[in-house]
Amino acid sequence: MDEQTGIQLLKTMVRIRLAELQLAIMYKNGKVFCAAHLYEGEEAVAAGVCAHLRSDDCITSTHRGHGHCIAKGLPMKEMIAEVCGRKTGCCGGKGGTMHLFKPGIGVMGTVGIVGGGIPLATGLGLAMQMQKTDRVAVSFFGDGASNNGAFHESINLAALWKLPVIYVCENNMYATSVAVWRSTSVPDIGVRGAAYGIPGITVDGNRVDEVYEAAAEAVARARAGHGPTLLECKTYRIRGHFEGDDSLYRTREEVAEARTRDPIEYWKGKLIGDGVIAEDDFAAISAAAEAEVAEAAAFAENSPFPEPQDALALTNQV
């Protein structure tokens, strides 16, 4: 990858991180009215994959989807305003964190149902193929979703029909409170691609360069009409499943150890070590992201709530 791409990946990860930390503060201060599932520690997956996508490519996401949306180009203001239920949000404040949509840039929804986005991305891939485009669809989902029928049925069809879909499993080691080893028959979910005759790859999801390289190949394969790829990115959910989760199912030592593998620290260290950026540049990147997030938060707080007469706006009325 070239230097500009490396810097861009770092910026994306920092923007996601600071947005999530801001939402954590807004949540506990009563400014977010729905559950908040935050993405801290998993930023390299969204950044590394979405760097290959055009605005006419599509993603489907999860309950932990703010990072995917930012990486796909959803403006920070529209994201935070939507999570705060404000009229200026991308869905008029009626969707919230688990229904973030912006079809014009291919954000085809964060989905509250575990595994719910996988068939949607498969359908998007079928549409793209039938329309004879070279667009691709990406489905982000977690380790828990890979044990759902929707995962297996979708990948089977996508493999059979050679659909342009990239199935990105963010293995963050926990499905709510259940450790992956308690629920999943294989240590590497990537091997499940073999069952459907497609490439199944496992990478360190905290290393954005590894994610970026693997996603490059998967996206190129899908664009060329050669079919889907299963890409497992092993990462770690630093915060609780939701804000307010006491995480009694894991030790503080385990979380502290995971923090030493921070994806932003890793990539910042790599770029500084390679002489691509200096410490000052990182400070400037952080300051710019901090300002963007603060502005978006103020924008959200100063925006009105939707009115009763807005109830049917943006809905698919028959």
Partner: peptide, 11 residues
């Protein structure tokens, strides 16, 4: 600093 609301049903 306020008593945080750490759940939708927390009063």
């Amino acid at each position: 600093v306020v008593m945080p609301r750490m759940g939708q049903t927390m009063e």
